[in-house]
Amino acid sequence: MRPYEVMVILDAGLEEDVIRATIDRATQLVTAGGGTVGRVDRWGRRRFAYEVHHRSEGYYAVVETTAEPAVMADLDRMLGLADEVVRHKVVRLPDKVAGRTLRPVLAEDAGADSNANGA
């Protein structure tokens, strides 16, 4: 399981129910694939810096998930095919950012690294 962050920009002209249903469909796809959905942060309607598909604003939502890469590939495909979605981006978060710790560095490895740098 890997941590991901998904940014979804939906058409701002949609009804609130359609926006909620689209985000729910995305989160259900993750949970059905064995992943977990963390925080769903709904930013609301925001103005674009430039027009995208002849639209000047969109509804932004950020979803934090933990899932397998295959599940996220399915989510990426689903969002790409959805007519309601203007843009989306799936980003794998580094382990440090996601609150995970990397394996501890052994003292032998740390000494070898400092010698390699000329210290």
Results as ranks from 00 to 15, higher is better:
16 E>I: 14
106 L>N: 06
80 G>Q: 10
102 L>C: 05
105 V>T: 09
44 G>T: 06
39 R>G: 00
92 R>N: 01
83 D>K: 13
52 V>L: 13
22 T>N: 12
74 D>V: 06
8 V>S: 02
76 D>F: 09
112 A>P: 06
84 E>K: 00
42 R>K: 14
103 R>K: 15
52 V>P: 01
112 A>I: 12
62 V>H: 00
104 P>N: 10
49 A>E: 04
40 V>C: 00
91 V>F: 08
51 E>F: 02
20 R>I: 11
114 S>R: 15
73 A>D: 13
35 G>P: 08
51 E>M: 07
77 R>K: 13
85 V>I: 08
67 A>L: 05
48 F>R: 03
111 G>Y: 13
58 G>C: 09
105 V>H: 09
21 A>C: 10
80 G>V: 08
5 E>T: 07
108 E>S: 14
82 A>E: 04
69 P>M: 04
40 V>H: 01
76 D>E: 15
24 D>S: 15
80 G>N: 12
9 I>E: 01
15 E>V: 11
43 W>V: 02
109 D>M: 12
53 H>R: 14
92 R>W: 04
106 L>M: 10
56 S>E: 08
8 V>K: 00
20 R>Q: 14
48 F>D: 05
109 D>F: 07
69 P>I: 10
51 E>L: 08
56 S>Q: 12
113 D>N: 04
10 L>S: 02
64 E>A: 05
47 R>W: 07
50 Y>L: 11
61 A>V: 15
57 E>K: 10
83 D>I: 15
101 T>V: 11
63 V>G: 01
44 G>D: 07
18 V>T: 15
34 G>C: 09
23 I>M: 01
90 V>M: 02
89 K>C: 02
98 A>N: 06
65 T>L: 12
82 A>H: 02
38 G>I: 07
11 D>E: 14
99 G>K: 15
11 D>P: 11
5 E>L: 07
42 R>F: 04
57 E>H: 06
12 A>D: 06
91 V>L: 13
50 Y>W: 14
116 A>F: 11
56 S>A: 12
112 A>Q: 12
47 R>A: 07
81 L>G: 09
105 V>G: 05
48 F>L: 09
77 R>V: 06
11 D>S: 15
107 A>P: 06
21 A>T: 07
63 V>L: 03
82 A>V: 02
9 I>R: 03
49 A>R: 04
10 L>C: 10
30 V>Y: 09
30 V>K: 04
63 V>R: 01
11 D>R: 15
